[in-house]
Simulated assay, not measured.
Amino acid sequence: MQNWLYILLTVLVAYIVISVLLYFLQDYFLFKPEKLSKDFQFYYNNQEIEEYNIETRDGATINGLRFKADNPKGIVFYLKGNSKSIKGWGKFAVDFTRHGYDVIMVDYRGFGKSTGRRTQKAVKRDMQVIYNKLKEKVSEKYIILYGRSMGSGFAAKLASMNNPRMLILDAPYYSLSKVAKKYIPFMPLSLLIKFPMPTYKWLKYVNCPIHIIHGTDDRLIPYKTSVKLSKIKPELTKLYTVIGGGHKNLNTFESYHKMLTEIITTRPKKVNLEGSSINVKHSSKRANAKA
């Protein structure tokens, strides 16, 4: 009896220790920031850029870049993934500037030159501040939100609170709690995780066109996640499948660029269903037999 009690107490103590470590160390596992010095100079071949800093109400600084297009048609607010800084992510801006769109990229708190304590609430507030500044420059009908991986959750939240032209999600997750549960199913993540990022909840309140791009061979965030997300607002959502695409290499597929070109350059057309087979149903074998 004493042995069983000892084993039970040992397991309980280990469980508590793991929970405490998970709570305090999760930022280390969720985020892989690259720090940049204040005097770091950004440079990209054949790209005209403008650097800016935004001071937040709690004293943090959000550093960002604007990639300029000639005679821009609109602005893409690109919310990046959970690693590195805009120093490296900036190379993807060309996928939009070549189509005539300015691109805004920012580093989250603790990334690049950005400062401040990083919490889900703080980052959401920062992104809204930047979005508000974009609205001061252009009408929302010219703003496209693009969220990549970690950034897909923040992009979905922004779209749920505003009225952009469209929302594009690249390799999105259902929620970070669900992703974490895949690796540590035995932990009480609803109590421990600081960044639950419930993309699926925020998508319910999005009223603009939603475009989801995902690779079939994504091992970090499975393709089925996007299938599930696409069913939340099916009347507004279109799912684009990159056959063979992983989590970090979609830009190396020609099909991805064809999809992206279609999304940002094509105006949606209303389909006339009159005279179509939309209401025609196949008869069952039993009904045929009676007939």
Score class of each variant (00 low, 15 high):
W4A: 09
T10L: 13
A14H: 05
V20E: 03
L21C: 14
L22R: 00
L25D: 06
L30P: 04
K35Q: 12
L36S: 08
S37R: 13
S37D: 14
Q47L: 15
Y52W: 15
T56P: 08
T56A: 09
D58T: 07
A60C: 10
F67R: 03
N71V: 07
G74S: 08
L79Y: 04
K84I: 00
W89R: 08
F92G: 12
F92M: 08
V94P: 01
V103I: 08
Y108V: 07
R118A: 10
T119M: 02
D126F: 04
I130C: 02
Y131F: 12
N132T: 06
I144P: 02
R148Y: 15
S149P: 10
S152R: 05
A156C: 12
A159F: 06
N162M: 05
Y183Q: 03
P185N: 09
P188N: 06
L192W: 03
I193Y: 04
M197S: 06
K201V: 12
K201W: 01
K201E: 15
N207Q: 12
I210M: 06
D218A: 07
V227W: 03
T237H: 09
K238L: 08
I243Q: 15
K248Y: 10
S255C: 03
Y256E: 09
K269S: 14
K270V: 14
V271H: 09
L273F: 14
L273K: 02
K281R: 15
